[in-house]
Amino acid sequence: MTMNRKERHKRDSYPESVHRKFEGFQEEFGIRFSDPTLLYKAFTHSSYVNEHRKRIHDDNERLEFLGDAVLELTVSRFLFDTYPSMSEGELTKLRAAIVCEPSLVQFANELGFGKYVLLGKGEEQTGGRTRPALLADVFEAFVGALYLDHGFDEVLKFLEGVVFPKVKVGAFSHVMDYKSQLQEIVQQNAGGNLQYRIVEEKGPAHDRIFVSSVTIDGKELGNGEGKSKKEAEQLAARHAIAELRETEGQAD
Results as ranks from 00 to 15, higher is better:
53 R>C: 00
55 R>I: 12
55 R>D: 12
55 R>P: 06
56 I>N: 11
57 H>W: 01
59 D>R: 06
60 N>Q: 11
60 N>G: 07
61 E>Q: 13
62 R>G: 15
64 E>G: 15
65 F>M: 15
72 E>N: 10
73 L>D: 12
74 T>G: 02
78 F>D: 13
79 L>G: 01
80 F>L: 10
80 F>R: 12
81 D>F: 03
82 T>A: 15
83 Y>S: 05
83 Y>K: 04
84 P>R: 14
86 M>P: 04
87 S>V: 05
88 E>V: 14
91 L>C: 11
92 T>D: 14
93 K>H: 05
96 A>N: 14
97 A>W: 03
99 V>I: 14
99 V>C: 08
100 C>K: 15
101 E>G: 00
102 P>W: 01
102 P>L: 01
103 S>A: 13
103 S>H: 07
104 L>G: 07
105 V>K: 06
109 N>H: 09
110 E>K: 02
111 L>K: 03
111 L>R: 04
114 G>N: 09
116 Y>V: 06
116 Y>C: 06
117 V>G: 08
117 V>T: 11
118 L>A: 08
118 L>V: 06
119 L>N: 02
120 G>H: 01
125 Q>V: 04
128 G>R: 00
128 G>N: 00
130 T>W: 03
131 R>F: 04
132 P>S: 01
134 L>W: 03
136 A>W: 05
139 F>P: 09
139 F>S: 05
142 F>M: 07
145 A>C: 07
151 G>T: 10
152 F>I: 15
157 K>F: 11
158 F>C: 03
159 L>R: 06
160 E>A: 13
160 E>Q: 12
161 G>E: 13
161 G>V: 12
167 V>E: 00
168 K>V: 11
171 A>M: 13
171 A>S: 14
172 F>E: 02
173 S>G: 07
174 H>V: 11
177 D>M: 01
178 Y>A: 09
184 E>N: 07
185 I>K: 01
188 Q>H: 10
189 N>S: 04
190 A>S: 11
